[in-house]
């Protein structure tokens, strides 16, 4: 379970480094860097915190991953998850923040 950085989108704001519970993200030369992808817990704190969708969550091959990338758009009332599958198809799932889980 890990994340991928897309450095061309990174603006070096450092939000990801502030929220990573493992101190795994650091700013180097104005851009976020991941110390070691193997150490990521997959909590997606950085994915939600990134204002430019420059970080996505991925399932490792050993966890059944199929090459998809999961991004998050964190807004006041909603959290929208954007899944880009390996074939380019995009799926969106929006979760209302004021709504509790049904299960």
């Amino acid at each position: 379970m890990s994340i991928r950085l897309e450095p061309e989108k990174c603006i070096g704001c450092g939000r990801c480094a502030d929220v990573c519970p493992g101190n795994l993200l650091v700013l180097e030369a104005g851009r976020a860097q991941l110390r070691d992808a193997r150490d990521c817990w997959g909590c997606t704190a950085c994915v939600k915190a990134c204002p430019r969708a420059a970080i996505c969550y991925t399932l490792e091959a050993s966890l059944g991953g199929a090459g998809g990338r999961l991004y998050a758009e964190d807004r006041q009332e909603t959290l929208t998850w954007v899944l880009r599958l390996a074939d380019g198809e995009e799926q969106r799932i929006t979760v209302e923040k004021h709504q509790a889980n049904d299960y």
Binding site: Y57, Q91, N101, D102, Y103
Partner: peptide, 21 residues
């Protein structure tokens, strides 16, 4: 659909796995 949202609120890997497969 409801389970997908529940898992996104705590363990997004599971929803992603369902969707990817």
């Amino acid at each position: 659909r409801s389970l997908e949202r529940s898992y996104l609120n705590m363990a997004p890997a599971q929803t992603m796995r369902w969707r990817e497969t």
